[in-house]
Simulated assay, not measured.
Amino acid sequence: MVSAPRSTARRGRPPKSLTAPQNSGRTQRPGTQRAAAKEATRLKLIEATIDSIAHSGFADTTLAKVSEGAGLSRGIVNFHFTSKDALLVETLTHLADEYTGFWKAAVEKAGSDPAARLSAIIDAEFHPTVCNRKKIAVWYAFWGEARSRPTYLDVCERQDRELLETVQALCAELVVQGGYETVEAEDVATGLMALTDGLWLDLLLTPTRFDRNGARRVCMAFLTGMFPRHFPSTGAAVPAA
Rank of each mutant, 00 (worst) to 15 (best):
M1Q: 08
R6P: 00
K16W: 06
T19N: 11
N23S: 09
S24Q: 08
R26C: 03
T27C: 07
R29V: 02
A36E: 06
A36N: 05
A40L: 11
T41M: 10
K44V: 01
E47K: 10
I50D: 02
I50C: 04
A54F: 05
G57P: 11
T61N: 07
A64G: 02
K65A: 15
V66Y: 09
S67D: 01
G71I: 05
S73F: 08
T82G: 13
S83T: 15
A86Q: 14
L88D: 02
L92K: 09
T93W: 01
H94E: 10
A96G: 02
A96V: 06
D97M: 08
Y99C: 02
V107M: 15
V107G: 06
E108P: 00
K109R: 15
A110F: 04
G111H: 01
P114V: 06
P114G: 07
A116H: 10
S119Q: 09
I122M: 05
A124V: 00
F126E: 02
A137H: 14
A137W: 01
V138A: 10
W139A: 04
W139F: 14
Y140A: 03
W143Y: 09
W143E: 13
G144P: 03
V155C: 11
Q159A: 14
D160R: 14
T166H: 04
L170K: 07
A172V: 12
E173S: 15
L174C: 03
V175C: 11
V176W: 00
Y180I: 05
E181T: 09
E184F: 12
E186S: 15
T190I: 08
A194D: 12
L201I: 09
L203I: 09
L203F: 05
T206G: 01
G214I: 05
C219H: 01
M220Q: 15
P228C: 04
F231D: 02
P232T: 10
T234E: 12
A237P: 09
A240F: 10
